[in-house]
């Protein structure tokens, strides 16, 4: 008999408390993240700054050295460079990255001497055709970048080169850099790639 009453008391009290637990959930915020259209910030901006998203190339500082093409383990980068015998200038006529093939390993951006090829935090590439995933960075042939012995002085290229070098330096270290220099306006946690992502895809 006491077990009988005990059973009743047990079930009533435990259900009572269980109902209190679930009721308390009405006063908590849901955890749901309503990607993609109802986000407080773009999800790209919330990603870690070393996130390996779509590759991007800054043609202004690309030396045409083909280091990235050689580093790519699956040959998704295709670069054609023409050498102008008279002016000794290299002409970049093709720089294609097949993002559908790319496995986002980051091996191309490590050997890049200027940080021209780099990862952004963009990742939304859904499309109806594979061809559209091939990013063609060279539309009109451009001359490759040549580092100057005296240091860069073209005001149009200086910030791009700074960004690229910062990217290279940070990519080489295993952890996040301690702190960016004070003159850098970017926030401490995501200095370089944050700036790159803010520029966005063309």
């Amino acid at each position: 008999m006491s077990a009988y009453v005990g059973n009743i008391v047990d079930s009533v009290t435990s259900i009572f408390d269980g109902m209190a637990v679930t009721f308390s959930h009405f006063f908590r915020r849901p955890y749901t993240v309503q990607y993609p259209d109802r986000m407080p910030v773009r999800v790209q901006d919330a990603l870690p700054y070393r996130y390996r998203g779509f590759l991007e190339v800054d043609l202004e500082i690309c030396t045409g050295c083909l280091a990235c093409e050689r580093a790519c383990p699956i040959d998704c980068i295709a670069i054609d460079v023409l050498k102008n015998k008279e002016t000794k200038q290299n002409l970049l006529v093709r720089f294609d990255i097949d993002l559908a093939k790319c496995m986002y390993c980051g091996l191309c951006s490590e050997p890049c001497p200027t940080g021209s090829i780099h990862h952004t935090r963009e990742f939304e590439g859904a499309d109806y055709s594979l061809e559209s995933m091939v990013r063609r960075f060279v539309l009109d042939p451009v001359e490759t970048y040549k580092p100057k012995k005296s240091g860069e002085d073209d005001p149009a290229i200086v910030p791009i080169l700074e960004r690229g070098m910062r990217y290279v330096n940070e990519f080489a270290v295993p952890e996040a850099p301690p702190k960016p220099p004070k003159k850098d306006a970017a926030p401490a946690v995501k200095p370089a790639v944050g700036a790159a992502a803010a520029e966005g895809q063309p």
């Binding site: 109902m19 209190a20 308390s24 006063f27």
Partner: peptide, 17 residues
């Protein structure tokens, strides 16, 4: 008593949040 239990669980669970 129910309201007290709800508050109890709310406080216990919501420290992190």
């Amino acid at each position: 008593q129910f309201a007290r239990r709800v508050l109890f669980h709310l406080h216990r669970a919501d420290y992190g949040r």
